[in-house]
């Protein structure tokens, strides 16, 4: 017996519900909207939220790119790409500029996105105040009142302890001058790419059952102090493979002697330059 799945795995009713939630999310930029997250054929933490969003918005004409930590060829990226190829039959690609839909974990591509593209983020924890305020009811109230002094308290203590705001990834941002939003665990270095991006940015948190969105050309401002402005770190070492200086690098131990190399985390970007 052959089992036939609906286009993009999810049934049409589920996709409709997710799309309606996404519309609401786009209408209230940065605001988390609860949704009925489904069981997916992979464990929580592997991208169940991102996959549901991708499945809800993908069409037969789309060209899909999937990256994990910037790479097109890690296990997770390969698996999700092949999953959608078999569940939809759409074309897949590794080229950022060619893709109409990009699902990502932990990075934003180095190649600037353009209008018409959709970037889908896999989000482990959508609530930026999670570690500061354990009561969900209270975080909801804090968002409603736009009271984000707790996050500033965290930044204050970071400067006090480390001499600077030492948040390397998942750097808190204010979206559309209103909601404090988690950019998902992308490096702080990537955060400026979110600001006024021509692409639509969608965020899916499967385990936490929440979606949120940043529409194209929306203000995304990292939290900081006037005398300690947002200043993300990145190595000044050039990429060992393509020589790029400005791109975000992975630091890789290359032998038993502990020698290290910096190479671009974005494999497509690096490959295009070589």
């Amino acid at each position: 017996m052959t089992i036939y799945y609906n286009f993009a795995y999810l049934d049409e009713g589920t996709k409709k519900k997710i799309r309606r939630t996404l519309l609401k999310a786009v209408a209230i930029p940065g605001h988390q909207i609860p949704f009925a997250s489904r069981e997916m054929p992979l464990p929580y933490g592997w991208g169940t939220g991102g996959i549901q969003v991708t499945a809800a918005v993908i069409g037969p004409e789309d060209i899909l790119k999937v990256i994990d930590q910037g790479s097109d060829d890690t296990t997770n990226a390969v698996s999700i790409r092949s999953f959608f190829r078999s569940a939809t039959g759409v074309r897949t690609t590794t080229l950022t500029r060619e893709a109409t839909l990009i699902q990502t974990r932990h990075r934003i591509p180095e190649t600037p996105l353009h209008a018409g593209q959709i970037l889908v983020y896999q989000v482990p924890m959508p609530e930026p105040l999670f570690k500061l305020e354990p009561r969900v009811s209270e975080t909801i109230a804090l968002h409603a009142m736009a009271d984000y002094s707790l996050m500033y308290l965290k930044l204050y203590d970071q400067i006090t302890r480390y001499g600077r705001i030492a948040i390397g990834y998942e750097y808190p941002v204010i979206v559309h001058d209103r909601y404090l939003t988690s950019p998902s665990p992308i490096p702080a270095y990537d955060v400026p790419k979110m600001h006024m991006s021509p692409a639509l940015q969608l965020f899916g948190a499967g385990r936490e059952k929440r979606l949120y969105a940043i529409p194209p050309y929306t203000r995304v401002i990292p939290l900081d102090f006037t005398d300690y402005p947002f200043d993300p770190v990145n190595t000044r070492q050039p990429c060992a493979l393509c020589g790029a200086v400005e791109s975000y690098k992975d630091e890789i131990v290359i032998d038993d002697a502990g020698n290290r190399q910096f190479i671009c985390s974005d494999t497509d970007f690096c490959g295009q330059r070589r």
Binding site: D147, S149, Y152, L153, Y156, I159, D224, F225, T226, D227, Y228
Partner: peptide, 8 residues
């Protein structure tokens, strides 16, 4: 900070 002070 709740009142908007943003200078460390």
């Amino acid at each position: 900070m709740a009142a908007g002070e943003r200078h460390y």
